[in-house]
Simulated assay, not measured.
Amino acid sequence: MRSPIDLTHRADEVAPLLLGWVLRRGEVALRLTEVEAYLGLDDPASHAYRGPRGRAATMFRAPGCLYVYLSYGVHRMANIVCSPAGSASAVLLRAGEVVAGVEIARHRRGRDEEPANHPVARLASGPGNLGAVLGLDLADDGARLGVEFSLEPGDSPSRTVMVGPRTGISHAVDWPLRFWLADEPSVSPYRRSPRASRPAEDRL
Rank of each mutant, 00 (worst) to 15 (best):
A57V: 13
A116S: 15
G126N: 02
L204R: 14
V14I: 07
E152M: 13
S188R: 06
F149I: 09
A182E: 14
E27T: 10
I80Y: 03
S83D: 15
L93A: 07
A37D: 06
Y49Q: 04
Y72D: 09
E113W: 11
P4H: 03
P176M: 10
L93Y: 08
L136P: 00
G128S: 02
P119N: 08
S170E: 06
E103I: 02
A105Y: 05
G73W: 10
L130N: 01
N129L: 02
R159F: 12
W21A: 04
I5V: 15
A139L: 08
S186K: 00
A143Q: 09
L181P: 00
V28G: 00
I169K: 11
G96P: 00
G126W: 04
V14H: 08
V173S: 03
T167M: 12
L41E: 15
E184Y: 05
A62E: 15
R144V: 13
A11Y: 08
G110Y: 09
R195T: 11
T8M: 08
E36F: 03
C82F: 14
G126F: 05
E152K: 06
I104S: 05
V187K: 00
R203Y: 13
H171C: 01
V147Q: 12
A196Y: 11
G40N: 04
T33R: 02
V98H: 03
A196Q: 10
P115Y: 02
M77F: 13
A15H: 04
P153N: 05
D202F: 12
A121I: 02
S188F: 12
G128D: 04
R61P: 13
Y190H: 15
A124R: 00
F60H: 03
F149A: 07
A105G: 02
V35M: 08
D141L: 10
V81E: 02
L70M: 11
G142R: 14
Y72K: 09
H75M: 09
A95C: 07
L92K: 08
V99Y: 01
R195I: 08
A48G: 01
R192P: 07
F149G: 02
E13V: 07
E184H: 11
E36I: 01
I169R: 09
L18W: 03
N117A: 14
V28C: 01
L92Y: 09
R53T: 08
L23Q: 11
M1A: 13
S186I: 08
Y190S: 14
G146F: 05
R159M: 12
T8P: 11
A200P: 00
P4L: 06
L93V: 03
D12A: 07
G101N: 06
A29L: 09
E13P: 06
G64H: 04
R61C: 12
A95P: 00
A100Y: 05
A11C: 06
V74W: 08
F149E: 07
R25A: 04
E27V: 09
L92S: 04
P16L: 01
G164L: 03
L30R: 03
A48Q: 01
D137K: 15
P157G: 14
V68Q: 02
V133Q: 01
V161A: 10
L123V: 07
G110N: 10
D183H: 14
S46A: 15
N79G: 04
V163L: 11
R192G: 05
V98M: 05
E103W: 04
L123D: 02
S197H: 11
P63F: 14
R198V: 14
L136W: 00
P199V: 15
A124M: 05
Y72E: 12
D112S: 14
E148G: 14
G96T: 01
G64F: 05
E114S: 10
L204Y: 15
